[in-house]
Simulated assay, not measured.
Amino acid sequence: MVAQNFAPSLACVLVHEGGKDDDPQDPGGRTAYGVIQRRYNQFRKAKGLPVRDVWDITPDERTEIYKAYYWDVCRAADLPAGLDYCVFDACVNSGDGQAAKWLQRALNDVRTKTGQQLIPVDGRIGDGTVQAANETDDMDAVIGAFSGRRLGMLQELKTWPRFGKGWGRRVAEVKKLSQAVARGSVPAPTPAGWVTAPDKAPVAAGGAPTSPKALQSDAKPLPSPTGGVVASGIGTASSGVSTITTTAAPAQGMSPTLDAVLQGLVVLGIVLALVGAAYAWWANQKAKKMADALGIAPPPAVGGTPSEPAEALA
């Protein structure tokens, strides 16, 4: 728990958020150094100042926004060194609610292995979450679980093909640095400028290209066992074969050729039924995996057991 880690944490966040962006595929919209236009408007209005282009944001405004709307909101100053930066970076890129869920689920991943009581996953970093984080012996394991869950959600976003390479690199770099600062099981020296004891002082670093926002709301739709082009196509074909087979059944025995056709249709109907069942199984499993990565409840399984409740996957 080191409040002084805000300065080096922000410097490292700006390595990934250090530019101006107005990409139409970025759900954050017009952005400068990781601060979106809507957030800048909120900040300026709260101070009684006129709204202006976020590209005109000053360094002092940028620092104040990061401190008030991200670092303080995710209670980074109350978290162990290393984990503070890890959660802070995720909060900036994907929102405080998502960062809180990743932290709570990561803590539960570790607590499950040690037989400890699980904490609620409510998307808010409160006293219970802070206490659980500071009670954890292996901070590297928490950071690793957090990073894995973060990457898992990013891979399910519609914009992953466009931004995935940069996101993947960012998560890997944040994980590596966070674990080095945490000084846990990863044998890496603490980088210069990071506070792990009260007698050290932070130093700043430079900036680089921006990173698009990675929001859960931009996720790909979950596959449906009974919907979509594939399921619809299988269902239509199967129904058509069944109708033809039923209609032609009375003519069976009238011609060897017709009998062969009917037998072929029966076999085709069986194949389509098997394909449909296989697709439904795949869609159920894929939807469950995506829902877990996104932290949401999957739709009820088709042809199987009911899915877990939302609170178990939040």
Rank of each mutant, 00 (worst) to 15 (best):
M1P: 13
A3L: 00
N5M: 06
P8G: 03
P8Y: 01
Q25Y: 13
G28L: 02
R30P: 11
Y33H: 14
V35Q: 05
R39S: 15
N41V: 04
Q42R: 14
A46D: 14
G48D: 12
L49F: 12
R52S: 14
V54G: 05
T58M: 03
T63R: 01
I65C: 06
Y66H: 08
Y69T: 12
Y70R: 15
Y70T: 06
Y70G: 03
R75H: 14
Y85S: 09
C86V: 00
A90R: 03
N93F: 04
S94T: 07
G95N: 00
D96A: 10
A100N: 06
V121I: 06
D122C: 02
G123F: 11
R124K: 07
R124T: 14
E135F: 06
T136N: 03
M139W: 08
G144P: 01
A145Q: 00
A145L: 08
R149M: 05
L151E: 11
M153N: 08
E156Q: 10
F163T: 03
G164T: 09
G168N: 07
V171G: 10
S178Q: 02
Q179P: 11
Q179I: 11
V181N: 07
P187F: 01
P189I: 00
P191M: 01
A204V: 05
D218L: 12
S224E: 09
T226I: 12
G228A: 05
I234L: 04
G235F: 09
A237M: 08
A237K: 08
T243N: 06
T246K: 13
T246A: 15
T247V: 10
P256R: 04
L258A: 10
L258W: 12
D259E: 14
A260S: 09
A260L: 08
V261C: 07
L268A: 14
A273M: 06
L274W: 11
V275I: 12
A278L: 02
Y279H: 15
W281A: 14
W281K: 09
A283K: 00
Q285H: 06
A287P: 04
M290N: 14
P299W: 00
P299E: 03
A301L: 11
G303I: 09
G304L: 12
P309S: 13
